[in-house]
């Protein structure tokens, strides 16, 4: 069901993340965010706070229209307003959202629509039917299992980022949850020992090394990504045990099941994002970038 492409790109992704991607929209607020982040932040608003400071429009020609046009007779008034604005903007300077280039807008938007339909027409009904049969507690167990099994991705990436404590925690979690947590079905490490989950992936590792997103990319079924994070996804694929299962069909089937299970626990998340947005495509893109930035910063 997930298709060959899904397999290909889903290869290295951490399961949780993958699911999230899979369920495309499911993402958002609590979910989608597993991904995005931009290092090539273009601080658009804060770039033109002063009248004389023309927006440096190297990478934002379209935005240059935002530079206030001053008419002589209203100049004073505008200046005052701008002064107020400037204050605001410096105040929130550090929280200004990172931006991402979107040169493949047509491709991305096309797959965005495809993914939207894929979710509403296939993934959601299937996941709903599945959740009707299996109680939530069982589905959370399955989700924990898949999370546990993808420990190698988080362990290796923690090390690559020199986060030795996180790497140690991953090992501890693996050992504890595989044993006391009954093969990973329970998250004993978090519930009883307060060893929290922390997602790490190769895209974040690149980000920690200072590599920017490059540009935004939407993949069929996998959803929002970027050049950097796509490369990371493929790399992480080699660390995902599920991708080593043979025959390949079985591996794909398991990945698809993981996706359905994950989606069943997050029905409504994607809908919420879409409903809250004025322009859902841009909202998701921005959320992806903001969330990835947070992940890299942590």
């Amino acid at each position: 069901m997930a298709g060959h492409k899904a397999f290909l790109w889903g290869k290295g992704e951490e399961l949780t993340m993958k699911l999230r991607k899979f369920s495309i929209g499911v993402v958002v607020i609590s979910v989608l965010f597993l991904f995005g982040c931009a290092h090539n932040s273009v601080r658009q608003d804060s770039q033109a706070p002063v009248v004389t400071a023309a927006v440096s429009d190297q990478n934002q020609e379209t935005k240059s229209t935002q530079a206030p046009q001053i008419q002589p007779d209203t100049a004073k008034e505008t200046e005052i307003k701008l002064a107020e604005d400037k204050e605001d903007i410096t105040e929130e300077g550090e929280e200004e959202a990172p931006q991402i280039a979107d040169p493949f807008y047509i491709w991305n938007k096309g797959w965005y629509y495809f993914n939207d339909k894929f979710y509403f027409w296939l993934l959601k009904p299937v996941s709903k039917g599945y959740s009707f049969i299996f109680p939530e507690i069982a589905r959370i167990g399955v989700s924990n299992f898949f999370y546990n099994i993808t420990t190698p991705i988080r362990f290796v990436n923690s090390i690559l980022q020199f986060k030795m404590k996180d790497a140690g925690n991953e090992l501890l979690r693996l050992v504890i949850n595989s044993t006391v947590g009954v093969g990973g079905l329970g998250d004993f490490a978090k519930g009883q020992l307060d060893i929290k989950r922390k997602n790490e992936d190769l895209g974040q590792t690149f980000g920690a090394y200072g590599v920017g997103h490059g540009f935004y990319l939407v993949w069929p079924i996998l959803g929002p990504s970027s050049l950097r994070d796509t490369v990371g996804l493929v790399g992480d694929g080699f660390l995902n045990p599920i991708n080593y299962i043979r025959p390949v069909e079985t591996s794909i089937a398991i990945t698809a099941y993981d996706t359905v299970n994950y989606t069943s626990l997050h029905i409504g998340d994607y809908e919420d994002i879409i409903e809250a947005a004025v322009d859902p495509y841009i909202s998701i893109r921005d959320a992806y970038v903001q969330n990835r930035k947070k992940k890299v910063d942590e």
Binding site: D45, T62, E95, A97, V278, D286, A287, K293, K294
Partner: peptide, 23 residues
């Protein structure tokens, strides 16, 4: 004046949307 969920600022998210529309 702003809510940040999982690193995603509401204000920033809508700002990006409105900016594109106002372009």
């Amino acid at each position: 004046y702003d809510i940040v969920i999982e690193g995603v600022s509401l204000v920033n998210n809508y700002r990006t949307q409105f900016r594109e529309i106002l372009a």
